Structure formats: structure tokens, C-alpha cells
Simulated assay, not measured.
Amino acid sequence: MRKKMVRRKPVTRKKKKLSIFYKNLLRLSVVIFSCALIMGIVYHYRNGLAYYFSFKTDKVLEENAENKRLSDIRNHQVLGKLEGKSIGIDVSEYQGDIHWNELKTIDNDFPIHFVFIRATVGCDRLDKRFKDNWTAAKENKLIRGAYHYYRPNENSLEQADLFIKTVHLKKGDLPPVVDIERLSENQSMQRLKLGLRRWLERVESHYKVRPIIYTGEKYYDDFLKKEFSDYLFWIANYNFYREKIEDDWLFWQFTEKASASGIKGSVDVNIYNGDLQQLQFITVD
């Protein structure tokens, strides 16, 4: 006769509960680690924080100091660390009416040497304030440059011709710039790159100077770095933890949230990978 097999129920072991001592020790460790992390961040950004709260300056805190943003701290930190580099801004119609005679510094501390001004967009659009801004920058003795916002879904040569028709470079101006930030909606990446190169070659042929390419760091790394290595780049990267300009960047746009004398609201700030004398060296002859 076959014996009936009886399955035994699996024995479940009860987990030992952590003692109150170990629980408290774990909590204390987390608190200590968090405090150390915060202190490390505060120490790293001590110069920016000092500026922000006016601990090390004779600045008087304004009534609206509570509205200052964390970006102000980073701006001062980055600019302070890159002392000796040439600093500039870029503007368009979105900055409205600029008081050019007051446009001297970033955060009242860092002198502005140059300004890039948007001239054209796509095949058919002129920046509404380009003409006034272009003239005023020269009158106020700022090194000026013009840029074109490139639309990948429009004819590249028509875009180049619009820029050429609009922008008349003179001795002392910066090379022309093409701003490319978006992917095409109706063509391959290879076709987009071909159109971009046609724009660059048409503009270079006219001005007899090689243009600069402006783009974001990811766009640069993913699509342009290899095939357009024969061009110089102006890179946008607003990462809070980046404080250094890369060796292969000609310009670094590190923030879009700075304040400049003479401009109402925020403005982009750019750092040239060299001093003022080196910046003057790359201008149009």
C-alpha cells in the first residue's frame, strides 16, 4: 500500500527587529551625512553666497533681496573663478529697449566687453531691434557680433542670403554666427547637416571669414562635433555644477538668468575662452 505523502509547511523565520539603539544610530548617520553635504555645498559656493547676502561686500541689501535667485549665486561664482576671461552678453528684440549708455557690467561687478545681436530668423524674418542695437553697440564701444537663428525646415541658402543682406560687418566686428538648436521635422539629419554646411560656406564666401556655430552642448556632442570640427563653437550649457569652459569651446553661454546694467529683466552671459586682447585678435580685419 502506498504511503500518503504529507507536505510540511515551510518554516518562516521571523526577522529580528532592529533595536532602538541601531535605529537611532541609523537616523543620526543620515542626519550627519546630510549636514556634511549641505556644508560642502555651502563651502564650495561660499564666494557666491557671500556676494548674495553681502557678507563680504559693502553692498546694501535691497528691499527685494528675497527675490534673488539661486542662479545669482552661481553666476558670481563662475565669473569670479574665470577672472581674466572676456565677458559678454547676447541680445535680441526680447530684451526690449536697451539703455546702451548704461550697459557696462554684469551684476555691477564684471565688465562687459562684447555683445552678440540677433539679426535674422529663418528665410524671411528680421529681428525688430537689430538695426538699433547694432548701431548702439558700436556707438558705445562694445565689440559686436551678429547671429542668425537657423530654421532647419527652411531653405539654407535663402537664410544665408537674408543674413548677408541684413548684416554689414565692419573692421573690429566679430565673425558671423549661426544659431542651430533644433532638429528638422521633415528631413534626415544628413540633409540638415548638408543645409547647415551650405549656409556656412555661403556666408564665409561673402564675408571672407569663417563663421562660428552656436548650439547646446548635447546637440554639439551628438550631431556636430565630428563633422564640423573645422569650425569654432559657441556652446550653451546652464548646468549648475559646471564652472569651467572646455578647451575646445570658443565661447560658453553659461546662464540665461543674469542681470546687466541698462537691461530690464534677464540676459544671457557668455565667456570668451581668452582675454580681451585675444578676443580682439579674432575680429574682422
Rank of each mutant, 00 (worst) to 15 (best):
D173N: 06
I245A: 14
E158C: 06
A160N: 04
S184P: 14
V177K: 05
D221I: 04
E201T: 01
N237L: 07
Y207S: 12
I245G: 11
V203L: 03
N186S: 15
R202F: 03
R182H: 13
L194G: 11
K225L: 13
N186A: 15
D221V: 03
V203D: 11
N237W: 08
T215G: 12
E227N: 04
G216K: 09
L224F: 09
S229C: 04
L200P: 03
K226N: 15
F163R: 12
K225H: 14
I213Q: 04
M189S: 09
R191P: 01
R191F: 13
E246V: 03
D221M: 01
S188P: 03
V178C: 09
N186D: 15
L200S: 04
V167L: 10
S184H: 14
E227A: 04
S205W: 15
W234P: 00
I164L: 08
K244Y: 13
V203H: 10
K171H: 02
V203W: 12
N155Y: 11
Y214G: 02
V203A: 08
T215I: 12
V167A: 09
P175T: 07
T215P: 09
Y238I: 07
A236P: 02
K244L: 11
E227W: 08
I235E: 13
P176F: 14
V203S: 07
